[in-house]
Amino acid sequence: MTTAEKNPRGIPKALFVEDVSAFLSGYKDSTELGLRHLQEVLSKYRFMEANMLQRKQSMLSKIPEIEKTLQMAKYLEERKASSEEPISVQYELHDTLYATARVQPRETVYLWLGANVMLEYPIAEAIALLTDKLEVSRRRLTHAEEDLEFLRDQITVTEVNTARVFNWDVKMRRQTAETSVTVAS
C-alpha cells in the first residue's frame, strides 16, 4: 500500500487507490483482507506521526533555551566592550528565589554541554557555537514540521482509501442482494 516514492527523510508515500476492484484483486478479491492491510498501513503512519510530534515538541522547548543563553552571551560580550564595571544581576538561586550577584566582565563563559560536562569558551566562540546550535535546531524543527505534513497527507490518503473500499463493499453487497431478490421473485 506504499509506493517506492519517499520524502527527503525516507518516509514512503502512500499509494492512492484509483480503482477499488483492481486494488482488491491483489487481496484475493477479499474486502476484509484489503481493509486489514489499509488499517496496518494507517497504524504505521500514525506511529511515525506520534514520534515526529514528540521530536517537534522537544525542538520547541530546546530552541527558546538556546535563545536565552545566546541572549545572555551577547549581552556579556557587549557589556565587556563598553564598561569595566561589575554587572549587577539577580539570578535564580532556587525556584522562585532570587539572589543578587556582582559579576566582573570576563573574557570567557562556561557552557553546559549536557552529560555533566561544562566547558569554558571565549565569549565570541560561545556565541558562534550557540548560533550554530540554534540554526541546527531550527532546521530540525522545520524538517519535523515538513515530515508531519507529509505524514498527514499519507494518513488522509489512506483514510480516503479505506472509506472508498468500504463504500465499494456496501455497494457490492447491495447489488448482490438486489440480484438475488430478482432471481427469487
Binding site: 536565552k68 541572549q71 545572555m72 549581552y75 554587572i87 549587577s88 544581576v89 539577580q90 539570578y91 535564580e92
Partner: peptide, 13 residues
C-alpha cells in the same frame, strides 16, 4: 535608577 531587565534566566541591572 537602573532597571532590572530580564536576559535569559536572570535579571540584569
Amino acid at each position: 535608577e537602573p532597571v532590572k531587565y530580564r536576559l535569559g534566566e536572570a535579571f540584569v541591572a
